[in-house]
Amino acid sequence: MPNLNQPRNVIPGFGLTMGFSLFYLGLVFLIPVAGLLIFTTTMSWADFWSAISHPQVVASYKLSFGASLIGALINLFFGMLVAWVLVRYRFPGKRIVDALVDLPFALPTAVAGIALVTLYASTGWVGQHLDVFGIRVAYTQLGVVVALTYIGLPFVVRTVQPVLEDLEAEFEEVSASLGASRFTTVRRVILPALLPAALTGFALAFARALGEYGSVVFISGNLPYRTEITPLLIVTKIEQFDYQGAAAIGTVMLLAAFLLLLLINGLQWWASRRH
């Protein structure tokens, strides 16, 4: 029986738009992804396990996950600081700074890669000053962290900024009038309100960093066991026509991406409930 309380939707085109959308998603996304997963299942468990647990591959997981985590943590801290400064303070050039935050999102990763290695090489504008202290960035694991920090930079800023803008001043005033110091207000009132958004941004930056290829390969030097990230290993295997090895490692990366997306969806659900 039709629900009489709900008027009939007069808007047309549901079948057409939904049908096209699902057809398109299926054709360019779902079927190809399923193709990779099924291809991986044609391997024996022993082959799969030896492909994903080879010491060189394990070393690349450690670097990829470790450097992505450090980069995302750097972005968590500085992202909240940048969001705070952009929302709460006035300074000249603020709008330009605000716009520039999106640059790593719009700049091709290969361009970012050659720009970063040029800056951080031991003769570069930044690298030569670090060289004095014996700090090497280009062609080391530190370089991987720098590249992954760069490409993850917009996420925490852009998730925290709108929440901070919508935060009612009343809560802070109540906290202050109850005698809390500014530091206590920030720690006990503002930070908890920003937490879900900040963690969402952190997870997005981490997910993006984990799969990143273009900006890293120029600055990392790609030494096996030392500065070789997991996506590079997949490229190497494809170039050697080792499809099975590549598919096994690619499946691991794909599962990591799915888990991170689940986590991000959970965080967003948590954030929307808090509002």
Binding site: P32, L36, G211, L232, I234, V235, A247, G250
Partner: peptide
């Protein structure tokens, strides 16, 4: 969220 390299791999497979 999927690595660009994995996207390439998917279509190589």
């Amino acid at each position: 969220a999927i690595s660009p390299v994995v996207v390439g791999l998917i279509f190589v497979v």
